[in-house]
Amino acid sequence: NGVGMPLGSFCPPKTVWLPAMKAKGLEISGTFVRHAGVIQMEMTITNKAMSVMTGFAIQFNRNSFGLAPAGPIQVPSPLSPNQNIEVSLPLNTVGPVMKMEPLNNLQVAFKNNIDVFYFSCQYPISVLFAEDGKMERQVFLATWKDIPNENESQFQIKDCHLNSDAASNKLQSINIFTIAERTVDGQDMLYQSMKLTNGIWALAELKVQAGNPNYTVSLKCRAPEVSQCVFQSYEAVLKN
């Protein structure tokens, strides 16, 4: 959890999105979080210039899942030299859509009284996992069968030391739900589902073997291009 985040919300550490030297003294670092269905862009805005900054505004380019600010950014201004401020910007997913490469890439324009600056950042796709992503067991079985094998991707998560219950609990904190669990030949097989805000479902099998720190995640999705990003979320939350 990030500082000040409610327990249970997964929040990757902030990274520098816009270094001061590229933006006439404006520095922005940030991360994304989802809590109770609300997606937020959490930013630290720092004035490393020698004069005050005012007139902040933010705009997103169209992106794969229609992420957009739910309202104008609220930055108390003026921001004095050497001052920094924490800002939370609530987002929605009803903005214009255009497929990005990578899929979770977001291009941002950020304005102040000095100029307009542009940067790209990547959000964890888990911020798009809906709270109602637990698929009915019967539907899961039918869907798993129905999605062709070509749409299955397999990934390894190396050096993970959780048992399957702990893994399942961590994954549930980002709205990946365990639907069934079976143990076969000493391997725990967890069947899981998640639903993206745009209605795309992903189905997963997580294989955990006692004493083996390497997990195998198999993902089946009708839109297999999301699998890589989904895997990154598994890795991030399980290794966090």
Partner: peptide
């Protein structure tokens, strides 16, 4: 009965994935 059938189906799925 449906629930039993689903339990059974998940067991078969897990088996098939471990010993294809």
């Amino acid at each position: 009965e449906l629930e039993d059938g689903l339990d059974e189906a998940f067991s078969r799925l897990a088996e098939s994935r471990t010993n294809p």
